[in-house]
């Protein structure tokens, strides 16, 4: 059913800490591993050992350079997967009813048995969260590891998305973002969690925590040692100084 639920009992999602992410891609591998081995069509690769390898992934890590007005640029590793939007445009455009958003926990899923592979949902998503599998011809997307989080066959500590479970930096957090008392909601409140492309009107559930401010750049810093280390003369002395002056006397030496 492609009508969005008016209200979801819970809003399960991820909180991704851009300050902590080290860009190791472990979550990418864990996601691909879990989601290719369990339910649904596997995440295929095309030409994996050839000249132009490609594959279906539900989670990818981009790295961005942020250049402030003054000071050095900062590198931010940026994991991106489905944001399980409240107002998910990918769901309503689906003609077959394969895409849906669950009323109980807000997870956006694709029923592959109904998908005809038209690709319109991937077009409707501004974030590039959906990828058509080249081998299966059906749309693949993050399931928030719906087959892990409720899976009583798994030890309790494994009942969270594979990407969260594997992250060695602790940059990914999973929880109910509709509950203001949950750990993830408190993180969002304390760290100023933000939406991606709010202007697209999708109301994403997943939130991103911005990088914390860095130490200021030395020019603005009062460095106690700097004055003692400053060069005492700008002119070169000794033999090199003589050579420098002598060379400048030659035609074309001084501008």
């Amino acid at each position: 059913m492609t009508q969005l639920p008016e209200h979801t009992e819970r809003s399960l999602g991820l909180v991704i800490d851009l300050d902590t992410c080290v860009g190791c891609h472990a979550c990418v591998v864990a996601c691909k591993g879990w989601n290719t081995e369990t339910h649904g069509a596997p995440l295929s690769d095309t030409d994996p050992y050839g000249a132009a390898p490609e594959g279906t992934f539900l989670n990818r890590i981009h790295s961005f350079e942020v250049q402030p007005e003054a000071g050095p640029a900062q590198l931010v590793h940026f994991p991106k997967s489905c944001l399980h939007c409240e107002d998910a445009p990918c769901v309503t455009v689906c003609p077959t009813g394969a895409s849906f958003k669950r009323a109980e926990d807000g997870i956006v899923l694709v029923n592959e048995d109904d998908c005809m592979g038209c690709g319109l949902c991937a077009w409707a998503c501004p974030y590039g969260a959906r990828e058509m599998d080249a081998a299966a011809g059906v749309m693949k997307k993050c399931t928030l590891c719906v087959d892990r989080i409720y899976n009583t066959n798994l030890p309790e500590e494994d009942r969270e998305p594979a990407c969260v479970r594997t992250c060695p930096a602790g940059a990914r957090h999973f929880g109910d973002l509709s509950d203001p008392a949950s750990d993830v909601s408190r993180l969002v409140a304390e760290r100023g969690g933000m939406d991606l492309m709010p202007e697209q009107g999708t109301k994403p559930v997943n939130k991103y925590l911005p990088p914390r401010p860095r130490d200021s750049w030395p020019e603005e810093q009062s460095d106690t040692l700097a004055p003692f280390l400053a060069p005492v003369t700008e002119e070169a002395g000794g033999f090199l100084g003589w050579l420098d002056r002598a060379l400048e006397q030659l035609p074309g030496g001084r501008a």
Binding site: S63, F64, V66, Q67, P68, P211
Partner: peptide
């Protein structure tokens, strides 16, 4: 924070 450019 500043201007954003894809690095990698």
């Amino acid at each position: 924070k500043g201007r954003v450019r894809l690095f990698e």
